[in-house]
């Protein structure tokens, strides 16, 4: 089993990168790999608690919640979170941590493969 590091820098509702990232993470977890994802820049918007959008049958936050449930580690960049007026704890779904670039450096250290989206 290997560790997949992921860097996601774009938010939901405008670019498809979040969907690609969630789908790849799901496939990796299903194969028994570990997934460690760092959310950077607008990437921090993906797992926020309150999302509604009639054109999507499944909200991005619920896809990320499913990843957490399957054992993925998801950490959001704190500077990016604060820049966007979001609050640690309050605005995030359960299991998503708010951290910083040192966490990303740790993911780099642990990753057998890294993909950036």
């Amino acid at each position: 089993m290997a560790t997949l590091g992921m860097l996601l820098t774009l938010g939901p509702f405008q670019f498809e990168n979040w969907d690609t990232a969630a789908s790849i993470a799901e496939a990796a977890l299903d194969k028994g790999h570990e997934v460690r994802m760092f959310l950077y820049l607008d990437g921090v918007y993906n797992p926020i608690k309150h999302q509604t959008f009639p054109d999507l049958s499944v909200m991005p936050k619920d896809r990320f919640a499913a990843l957490v449930e399957k054992g993925a580690t998801i950490i959001a960049c704190g500077v990016c979170v604060n820049a966007r007026g979001l609050e640690k704890g309050k605005d995030y779904i359960d299991g998503v941590k708010v951290g910083g670039l040192p966490d990303f450096a740790e993911i780099i250290g642990e990753a057998d493969a890294l993909i950036t989206l």
Binding site: Y40, L101, A105, I108
Partner: peptide
């Protein structure tokens, strides 16, 4: 510039990438 910030972050961790 955010790419440079990330590069600084990568070099500043415990592993000193």
């Amino acid at each position: 510039t955010e790419g440079l910030r990330a590069a600084v972050g990568a070099t500043s961790g415990i592993d000193e990438h």
